[in-house]
Design a binder for these strands. Sequence first.
DNA 1: CTCGATATATCGACACCCTATGTATGTGTC
DNA 2: GACACATACATAGGGTGTCGATATATCGAG
Lengths: 117, 117
Amino acid sequence: MTEKGFDVQDFARGIHELLVLSSLQTGEKHGYQIALDLQADSNDLFRFKHGTLYPILHRLEGEGLIKGSWSKDGGRRKKVYSLTGKGRKHLSGETGRVQEIVSGLMRLLPAPSEVPA
Amino acid sequence: MTEKGFDVQDFARGIHELLVLSSLQTGEKHGYQIALDLQADSNDLFRFKHGTLYPILHRLEGEGLIKGSWSKDGGRRKKVYSLTGKGRKHLSGETGRVQEIVSGLMRLLPAPSEVPA
DNA sequence: CTCGATATATCGACACCCTATGTATGTGTC
DNA sequence: GACACATACATAGGGTGTCGATATATCGAG
């Protein structure tokens, strides 16, 4: 069993990071695109603010989970990110951990009143 | 459908509050007991620090979700909390919301590699 | 009587997200 | 050509919450 120690703040931060990493699974993207895709794919549930997204990108890059390279699309610069091997490993590992926590959480929370539609 | 925004911080805070409320479902308890029960019931996954628990209790009481009353067990004082109707309602409502977010999250995250044991 | 467990409470440090602001390019419109 | 708006990246400041440390007080064990 994965050790213990659950930290709400790490968990919350992890969700954002995992979403970004997950979004890069389908191919490399630049930041702005990640935000748009995540918002669309989640049906507007997850909306990344610029002030939230870029620091996360920098953090992930600093940790070597993603790799960014500048690209010039005409005169406009874009920083295109792609998953590293480490990032892919982190994504699957942390996803498993999230599920562990979620299932632990659901065990303690009351069962949802099975209200049909 | 509950649409609208998702806030990581509210979510994280909500988890703690929900766990406390859920623990009170089985009957009234005092703070210290809640922490012990939650830790035991979650198999050591969730551990509440004193500096975290008591502010939560005060917040929940201030919002009228729980009701506390002092009890003297010999000379040692305990503040025993119980769920209010409002608290019970909040618990089921927010639990539903958490599940909504969790399922949205799981849709975006990669499927767990079904690794046996 | 000293140590540790029980029981509650508060404060300062730290981390993080969010709002606002700034820079710069591309496009559409008049 | 001038202007507004979308694209695209970046950072600083404010607010909020958890965590560790500290304090008070009672009770049982050695």
